[in-house]
Simulated scan of single mutants.
Amino acid sequence: MTKTADKLPKGVLHPLTGERKFSLARYQPSGDTGYFVQHYWIVRWDLRGQEPYPQTLIAYPNVNMIVEPDNTRIYGVARKTSAHLLLEQGWVVGVKFKPGGFYPFLQKPVSTITGGSLGFEELFGVRSGPFEDEVLQQPDDERMVKRVETFLDERLPERDPNVELVSGMVKAIQDDRTVVKVEDAVRLTGMNKRTMQRLFDRYVGVSPKSVIQRWRLHDAAERIDRGEVRDWLDLSVELGYYDHSHFIRDFRSIVGLSPEEYRQKR
């Protein structure tokens, strides 16, 4: 089981505070599971004697399964930010599916769970309690991840070639910073706009426009957290917005704060 960097990813809001409150470890999938899963992750925290901490992030366009005591569920892509309240001491294990990678398990449009969640038993037909105990009581991270992967390995659906197609498109949009609107994604991928929108609805759960917006806001939040932003107009232009009022509106609609309010909280 290969462990990757522990650095908090883009999208985690106020990461300098978060690094003092919790740790994140990520592990790469192995074998056939890697066709569907982007990585596994484990968050640990010890806040005994401290105030609870709401870990908040601008969600990536990925479905996640989170294994935690008495509440193992599969979470669709959040419409705005997503948050997990960290109390006392504990840990959770997550499966981050590739964009499109959860559709073969669900076998219906992933948009049907966007902004919501799906019960573990509802999807897999087994009670979550024994699975949670078996995973969370393992003596180390690697064995917890291995137990989750073994469970998935035993229930892998048939490969769907659209998983690779959609995952590749999402990564291309992420990597190419000139993609600032859907028409740019159409140019980059060569796919018909309507076809792309239908694919994203079925396999990703959110529209191409939403995916592009999330990457831009990830960049914005990261720059604000680093203290690199001096002028909102300059930042909005760099991110591909026609005017900074549109950028501020997008930021507030997702984060719940204006960029300036977010900077002040930093």
Rank of each mutant, 00 (worst) to 15 (best):
E132V: 00
D133C: 04
E134K: 00
V135L: 02
Q137E: 14
Q137T: 12
P139A: 02
P139M: 01
D140S: 10
D141G: 02
D141F: 03
D141C: 03
E142A: 08
E142I: 01
E142D: 11
R143D: 10
R143A: 14
R143L: 14
M144V: 03
V148P: 02
V148A: 02
T150I: 08
F151Y: 08
L152V: 10
E154K: 02
L156E: 13
L156C: 08
P161Q: 12
N162F: 05
N162M: 11
V163N: 00
E164H: 02
E164S: 05
E164L: 01
V166H: 07
S167D: 14
G168E: 13
G168K: 05
G168S: 15
M169K: 03
K171L: 12
K171H: 14
K171Q: 15
A172R: 14
I173Y: 07
Q174K: 13
D175I: 00
D175A: 05
D176W: 06
R177A: 11
R177V: 13
R177C: 07
T178R: 13
T178E: 15
V179A: 06
V179F: 03
V179T: 04
V180M: 04
V182S: 04
D184I: 03
D184H: 12
D184M: 02
D184E: 12
A185G: 14
A185H: 08
V186R: 00
V186F: 02
R187I: 03
R187G: 12
R187F: 09
L188F: 09
L188H: 06
T189W: 08
T189S: 14
G190F: 09
G190D: 15
G190Q: 12
M191V: 07
K193A: 14
R194N: 15
T195R: 13
T195A: 15
M196R: 06
M196D: 10
Q197D: 15
Q197H: 13
R198K: 15
F200H: 06
D201R: 02
D201M: 01
D201T: 04
R202D: 15
R202P: 05
R202F: 06
Y203V: 08
V204Y: 05
V204Q: 07
G205E: 07
G205A: 08
V206C: 09
V206T: 07
P208L: 06
S210G: 10
V211E: 12
V211I: 10
I212N: 07
Q213L: 12
Q213I: 04
R214L: 09
R214E: 09
W215E: 07
R216L: 11
L217T: 01
D219H: 05
A220I: 02
A220K: 02
A221W: 00
A221C: 04
E222L: 02
R223W: 13
D225W: 00
D225I: 00
R226C: 07
G227E: 10
G227P: 03
E228P: 07
R230P: 09
D231T: 01
L233K: 15
L233T: 13
D234S: 14
D234A: 13
L235Y: 06
V237S: 11
V237A: 08
L239T: 10
L239I: 13
G240L: 06
G240S: 12
G240Q: 09
Y241R: 04
Y241G: 06
Y241C: 07
Y241K: 04
D243L: 01
D243G: 04
D243F: 05
H244P: 14
S245M: 10
H246P: 03
H246G: 11
H246F: 05
F247R: 07
